[in-house]
Design a protein around this nucleic acid. Structure first.
Length: 699
DNA sequence: GTTCTAGAAC
DNA sequence: GTTCTAGAAC
């Protein structure tokens, strides 16, 4: 296509216009830039804004071109105020206008403003001409940035100015404001930030780089150098393909938990996301958190962006991203090594949404890996699943771990609905993010990018920093959030808010290698330790290692094998103890409601000779129906799918001798009685091997 | 879970 | 006055 072909050579230095393409996503400040220049310009300017070109409404590229030509004919210079992010978008303006008779030079002004800033500006402005506001903003900005290509001189620009900071923008505004009718500007590219990374990053990542890294003056200080060939090369350097991305920075990509199918209030959820992220960022070193949503109308992303931008959060390390969480690297150019899954409680594929997508992308490896770690998940908890090298998610996307996390449900059509109880709901959601970020933190630590934290770091504890041993750990959650009234499959104790001191066993079960000094025995499924406060001459615990089985109430048919292994290991220890002392008599069982997290089997001799047995609760927890014999638990789980549990009320009952059942007024008197009680044990204990007496001896 | 301690029980 | 428990604090 050609413009007019007159006056080719004649009066070159006559009044010719300059075409300036603004380049930047919505919210980067293109319109503001034009307005600033046009306040008191030294030459006439026309702003060609695609957002309003069509009688105040958005128009198209052709309309922009047409209007630009008209303005140029009138002797004006023009600002092309549209995003112009990729090369294709720019080429017509460069070729058609730049080659025309009224144009002297074509420039680019690149507004390299952090994506977060652009998004939050876009969200805030309600009267923006492009009608880009509210929830769509984040989505649109992210989408656009994915196709972004930085301009190069060989596209046909005679001059490019890169602006990374307000100071850069001011400087550029000044440059164009001062430009007289007959002036031209030096050719070349100016202010391009050093591509400082060895592993080059795609355009989108550039937007997350620290703005302050660029000295404000650099955009104008080295104009001479910028016209050299090296300057052009520099620009080319920045245009990289996402495939070249290295996995330098540990990054967790996570979907918004509970806000889709579980219908959790978006405003409350966004507060929790931002607050929990804020809490975790300092612990994460250089690692990053990215909230991801597939939807281009994501309200949650814009809420989170808006809230994050109001806080003092490092927006390079906490940001939002629009894309398919299973294809962030291949399609979005965002490299994450860990992704979170908004799982269902069964930890099974299906159900649509993120869960279905992630299980599909992870294939059998993910399912097997998940099953090896846990069978179910309760709301508020997370489980980290490492991916083997055969897993497609790992190969194609560089994902090394998937963290399943289950949030609270507010949808009456789903199990365990909280019926709009947001006191409970918020608590569980906060716990869910804490578990998730804690899980991510553990993967970061495991790659020894960070010094290890103290060993009680667990996924449900919000990172207690206590170090003094004997003080135990500060409580970080109160225990009030126990039973919701639903009778769903998960059980009554939907989300037990474990006090930090109650996590010790869980930590040991998850990381026996960190507790070699106290671990007596361990396998893939169990760990054996001495009870720290033995209530009898012999008292050991067999801990289940499987995540998500906190106590007897969580036990289901799928745990039968685990229960059998625990039982057998317990029996082995009894045998060992009885070989040392044949008079020892044992019981093997579980507390109905454990005080400490992680299913643990008590192996305890029936003498109860211990200074640590001090109160009624201690005694009754081992000698009433609160103590569930392992044989009975196994039988019940096999026959009815779960074990019966006794109420904690029985712990307050009277103090009865475990042999003769006589009642005693207090613990000292009881203890003195049991030292010499001559009676046989009650019948029910003598049956079914509940009481484990050494075969050779009697009673 | 334990520790600490006020005050009940004796 | 001493022992012991129960509840709060951790």
């Amino acid at each position: 296509m050609e413009m007019e072909t007159a006056e080719v050579s004649g009066e070159k230095k006559k009044k010719k216009g300059i075409v300036v393409l603004l380049i930047g996503p919505p919210g980067s400040g293109k319109s503001t830039f034009c307005d600033s220049v046009m306040k008191s310009p030294q030459r006439p300017w026309s702003r060609i804004c695609q957002d309003i070109i069509n009688k105040g409404k958005a128009g198209n590229k052709a309309q922009c071109l047409k209007m630009a030509i008209e303005s140029l004919k009138e002797g004006k210079s023009v600002f092309i105020d549209r995003c112009n992010l990729d090369r294709d978008q720019r080429s017509d303006f460069i070729n058609l206008l730049g080659g025309g008779p009224h144009v002297d030079q074509v420039h680019a002004v690149v507004l390299e403003i952090p994506a977060q800033v652009c998004i939050s500006r876009s969200v805030k402005r309600t009267g923006h001409e492009g009608n880009l506001q509210g929830g769509r903003a984040a989505a649109v900005v992210n989408k656009m940035l994915q196709s972004k290509e930085l301009p190069t001189l060989n596209e046909g620009f005679s001059r490019i100015m890169f602006c990374y900071s307000d100071a850069d923008v001011d400087n550029a505004v000044k440059t164009y404001t001062m430009l007289g009718p007959m002036d031209t500007l030096p050719s070349g590219s100016f202010g391009l930030k050093h591509s400082d990374t060895k592993s080059q990053q795609p355009g989108i990542m550039k937007f997350f780089k620290k703005v302050s890294a660029l000295p404000a003056s650099s955009s104008s200080s080295n104009e001479k150098a910028a016209t050299t060939p090296e300057a052009n090369e520099k620009i080319e350097d920045v245009r990289v393909s996402p495939a070249k991305l290295g996995s330098v920075v540990p990054t967790l990509a996570f979907p918004s938990i509970s806000t889709a199918d579980f219908q959790f209030d978006l405003d409350k959820a966004s507060d929790i996301i931002v607050e929990t992220a804020e809490e975790f960022l300092p612990k994460l070193g250089s690692a990053r958190l990215a909230l991801v949503d597939l939807s281009h109308g994501s309200k949650i992303l814009s809420l989170v962006n808006a809230k994050a931008s109001r806080k003092n959060i490092d927006l390079e390390r906490f940001f939002t991203f629009v894309g398919d969480i299973t294809k962030l690297h291949s399609q979005g150019g965002l490299h994450c090594n860990v992704i979170a899954n908004a799982a269902n409680w069964r930890l099974k594929p299906g159900g649509g949404g993120v869960n279905a997508a992630i299980f599909k992308a992870g294939g059998p490896d993910l399912e097997a890996g998940t099953r090896a770690r846990a069978n179910t998940l309760v709301p508020g908890k997370a489980v980290v699943v490492p991916l083997p090298s055969t897993c497609p998610l790992r190969n194609a996307e560089g994902i090394t771990h998937v963290i399943h996390v289950l949030g609270p449900n507010m949808n009456p059509n789903r199990p365990n609905c909280l019926n709009k109880d947001y006191t409970k709901g918020c608590k569980i959601l906060r716990e869910a993010y804490t578990s998730l970020f804690g899980g991510f933190l553990s993967t970061v630590e495991d790659q020894s990018k960070l010094p290890k934290r103290n060993n009680q770091a667990t996924m449900s504890d919000s990172g207690a920093e206590d170090s003094e041993r004997n003080k135990k750990y500060k409580g970080t959650q109160d225990k009030a959030s126990t039973n919701n009234m639903e009778s769903g499959d998960i059980g009554k104790k939907m989300s037990k808010g474990w006090r930090s001191w109650a996590l010790a066993l869980h930590v040991i079960a998850m990381h026996p290698e960190r507790h070699e000094n106290i671990v007596l025995e361990s396998s893939d499924h169990i760990v054996v330790i001495n009870d720290q406060y033995p209530k009898a001459r012999k008292h050991v615990l067999v801990l289940a290692r499987q995540e998500g089985v906190d106590g007897l109430e969580d036990v289901r048919r799928e745990h039968i094998q685990l229960l059998e292994e625990m039982h057998n290991v317990g029996m082995k220890w009894i045998k060992r103890f009885q070989e040392e002392d044949a008079s020892l008599i044992f019981r093997l069982g579980y507390h109905s409601v454990p005080s400490m997290r992680q299913l643990h089997l008590h192996v305890i001799s029936q003498d109860f000779e211990s200074d640590h047995l001090k109160n009624k609760k201690h005694w009754n927890s081992f000698t009433t129906s609160f103590f569930r014999d392992s044989v009975d638990v196994l039988e019940e789980v096999k026959s009815q799918g779960k074990a019966n549990v006794e109420s904690e009320d029985v712990l307050k009952g009277e103090l009865r001798c475990n042999r003769c059942r006589s009642v005693h007024p207090n613990i000292p008197k009881l203890k003195s009685h049991i030292r010499t009680c001559p009676s046989q044990f009650p019948d029910h204990l003598l049956q079914s091997n509940r009481l484990l007496v050494r075969p050779e001896t009697s009673n």
